[in-house]
Amino acid sequence: MSVLVYTESDNGTFKKGALEVASYAKALANQMNTTVTAVAFNASDVSELGKYGVDKVLNVAHSEGFDANVYADIVKQATEKEGAQVVVLSSSADSKYIAPMLAVNLNAGFASNVVAIPESIAPFTVKRTAFTNKAFNHTEITTDVKIVGVSSNAFGLVEHPASATKEDFSPAITTSNVTVQSVDKATDKVTIADADVVVSGGRGLKGPENWGLVEELADVLGAATACSKPVSDLGWRPHGEHVGQTGKPVASNLYIAIGISGAIQHLAGVNASKVKVVINTDPEAPFFKSADYGIVGDAFEVVPQLIEKLKAFKAQNA
């Protein structure tokens, strides 16, 4: 009757999101008086998972690469093997791909974008974001088996002085009809989903030729880069960087908005970030109402200085 958690890895290293859902699963297991079992693929070293509260890791050796259908089927088999009542997943693109299919496989209710451990176990009620961060919604999952998708950066990482045992798991492997032909992914860049800090630029930056500023600031902070919708619509930046209600959600620790007015659709998607800094020439820009810190000033003067100051700060604190 354990809590089962699906932990994603990339070339054998567990993703930050995996450690966060492990932390969440541990808190939930404590609440339910049970243990945490993780399902992992091609893991060699599972000690990281142990550190974040996982008791047992079911490791699947699978050389074929990610396939949502196949993975959903394997997680189902692991859930049944463990007799798990709750399955926890992250909000990564792959986990959001798997979760609805898993829900059908297990005939389980699924709550996505969950931001806290359940308010109660019976009834099983969780708090989730709705209306793109304009509200929270307390949702009860009424089925026997429950699936929880945890919002990125909502729970955080919580360490435990424990270790995980590793067990080989050889489920029946199905085939699927969706075949990956090619992957196009920047491996040296922090993704918006994983980033602690996001630096975002708007139309106030005037043109794509000025994005060096955004990139340099992001570099200094180890941040991901993002942009407002018109910036991607104009082709100044790739669509993958568009954040907001109709783009990617951002829930970073620090969000820096440069030359972004703060339209309601933009704010909705980034409001879940913990600390927001706004740099804008217009003191009336609506973004100042939702920001923690603001500078009324010209990005082309402020940002280069900020980069210099941060470099100096880093050199001092290195």
Binding site: G109, K127, A130, N137, H138, T139, F288, D292, Y293, G294
Partner: peptide, 16 residues
């Protein structure tokens, strides 16, 4: 399989 029990709005933000 689920039921929305209650809604809530985020706490108002302090001044910038």
């Amino acid at each position: 399989t689920t039921a929305a029990v209650k809604f809530e709005k985020p706490a108002a933000k302090g001044a910038v």
